[in-house]
Computed example of a mutant assay.
Amino acid sequence: MKTVLITGASSGYGRETALHFHSQGWNVVASMRTPRAGVLPESDRLHVVELDVTEPDTITAAFEAAGAVDVIVNNAGIPSIGVFEGTPMARVREVFETNTFGVMAVTQAVLPQFRERGSGVIVNVTSSVVLGHMPLTAVYKASKMAIEGFTASLALELAPFGVRAKTVEPGACLTTNFAANAADGGPLDELVPAPYAPWAKRAMNDFTAQDLFTKESDVAETVWRTVHDTTGQLRFPAGPDALHLAQAR
C-alpha cells in the first residue's frame, strides 16, 4: 500500500486531496499545523499528524510518525493580497517562510529516503498566478514563482535517482478558507494605500466577475494525475481558469 503525506490538509485543496487519495486505497498522512478532530473521517488508512512547515522540529516529528512515504504533496501555504507599497516587510517574510522556505524544508527532509530507495514523487502546489499577470499578488506570486524555479531545477537533480518533482498550479477557488483569509482577515480597503484604492477596487471586481473558477476537486484530481504521470511533464494547471491561462500563455 502506497503512502502520501500532504501538508496543509485541514481544509481546502489539502483536505480534498487527502480524501481523494484515501478513496483510491492509499495510506494518507494528513499533516496540519493545528490538528483538529472531525476534519477528516476516521480510518486505519488515514493518520493526522502535526506539522508546521516553518518549525523544523515538527517536520522531523511528522516524518518519524509517518514512516516510509511514497509521495509528498507540499500544499500548505498562506495567502497575501494587497498593494506591495502597503505590505510590511514583516508580512513579506512571513509569506516566504511558509510558501517558499517551508516547501523547501519539507522537501529536504524527505529526500534522503527517496534517494536511497530510488523512487518517490514530490508535488509542489503553487498557483495559477504564475501563469499570468495578476494585480494585487506581487508578494504571493513571488513566493510561488520561487517554488516553480526551485522545482524545475530540483527535478533535474533527482532524475538520476528515479525521483520526480512536479508542480500543480491551481486556479482561483472562492470556497476555501484560503480565499476567505486572502486579505489577512480584513477588508481589502484596509490593506491598500489610499491612492491605489480606486484601481484596486476595479481589479477585485474584475477578478470576482470572471466566468471560470476552480473547485477543490479539480486540484485533488490534478494532484492524483500528476503523481501518476510518467511523461516528464513538469507543470500541471488545475481548474478551468488555470487551464485557460496556461493555454493563453
Rank of each mutant, 00 (worst) to 15 (best):
Lys2Gly: 05
Thr3Leu: 09
Ile6Ala: 01
Ile6Phe: 12
Tyr13His: 08
Tyr13Pro: 00
Gly14Gln: 06
Glu16Tyr: 06
Thr17Ala: 12
Thr17Ser: 06
Ala18Cys: 11
His20Asn: 11
His20Val: 03
Ser31Ala: 14
Thr34His: 09
Pro41Trp: 10
Pro41Cys: 09
Ser43Asp: 15
Asp44Gly: 04
Val48Asn: 04
Asp52Gly: 01
Thr54Arg: 11
Thr54Trp: 09
Pro56Ser: 05
Asp57Thr: 14
Thr58Val: 07
Ile59Gln: 06
Ala62Asn: 11
Glu64Ser: 02
Ala76Gly: 09
Ile78Phe: 03
Ser80Thr: 06
Glu85Ala: 09
Gly86Ser: 10
Val95Gly: 06
Gly102Asn: 05
Val106Asn: 05
Val106Ser: 00
Val106Cys: 00
Ala109Val: 06
Ala109Phe: 04
Gly118Glu: 13
Gly118Ile: 06
Val121Ser: 05
Ile122Asn: 13
Ile122His: 08
Ile122Arg: 07
Ile122Tyr: 02
Thr126Tyr: 00
Val129Cys: 00
Val129Leu: 03
Val129Pro: 01
Gly132Tyr: 15
His133Cys: 08
Met134Trp: 07
Pro135Ile: 06
Val139Leu: 08
Ser143Tyr: 03
Ser143Ala: 08
Lys144Ala: 01
Met145Ala: 02
Glu148Val: 03
Ala152Ile: 04
Ser153Asn: 13
Glu169Ala: 00
Thr175His: 15
Asn177Ser: 14
Asn177Arg: 14
Gly185Asn: 04
Gly186Glu: 14
Leu191Val: 06
Pro195Leu: 07
Pro195Asp: 12
Trp199Asn: 10
Lys201Val: 08
Gln210Trp: 12
Ala220Trp: 05
Trp224Met: 00
Trp224Glu: 00
Thr230Met: 08
Pro237Asp: 00
Pro237Ile: 01
Ala238Asn: 03
Ala242His: 09
Ala248Trp: 14
